[in-house]
């Protein structure tokens, strides 16, 4: 599946099966929020991003309105992914149980931190928000971060 972001004139690809896998893990944690890290590779001209995988946090706190994840203990994993496949940590995903895929102020603040973080070598991290119910994925939105703003892909 291919979607576009017009503000930065970029494309994003994700395999539907991969997206389903992510969603089903999110649904399991209903009614609490849950999430993790996204892995991907850029095309040579940096106009396309292919999301290739996701990583779950070792530790996290989830409630119906809050999700806090830790990346501790995963550093080596991210480094190996880069060394072996040239894939990057490219962003984050989390669920909004029984709610829209609109990002919150907390979400935006987290993305600002991420983009400014020294160990993050990419400039435009991705945020995926999945609206889930007890049994299904209702809707999802991919956002791209740029200059303290998040804009959706269409």
């Amino acid at each position: 599946m291919k979607i576009k972001n017009h503000t930065r004139k970029v494309e994003l690809n994700i395999d539907e099966n991969l997206l389903e896998d992510i969603a089903s893990i999110g649904i399991k944690h209903y009614p609490n929020e849950f999430g993790g890290f996204l892995i991907g590779e850029y095309s040579n001209n940096f106009k396309n991003l292919n999301i290739t995988d996701f990583i779950l946090p070792n530790s996290y706190k989830g409630s119906p309105y809050l999700f806090e994840r830790s990346a501790l203990g995963l550093e080596e994993k991210f480094e190996n992914i880069f060394k072996e496949k040239g894939n990057y940590y490219i962003g984050e995903w989390h669920t909004h149980p029984s709610s829209s895929t609109k990002f919150s102020k907390t979400d935006l603040d987290a993305m600002i931190n991420i983009a400014n973080c020294e160990t993050v070598t990419i400039k435009n991290p991705i945020l995926l928000i999945l609206s889930v119910s007890k049994t299904t994925l209702n809707h999802y939105t991919f956002y791209i971060y740029d200059d303290k703003k998040l804009t959706p892909y269409e």
């Binding site: 990346a71 991210f78 880069f82 990057y88 490219i90 160990t119 993050v120 070598t121 990419i122």
Partner: peptide
């Protein structure tokens, strides 16, 4: 490599 900040 790109590594995420520890807590978000």
């Amino acid at each position: 490599a790109s590594t995420p900040p520890s807590t978000e």
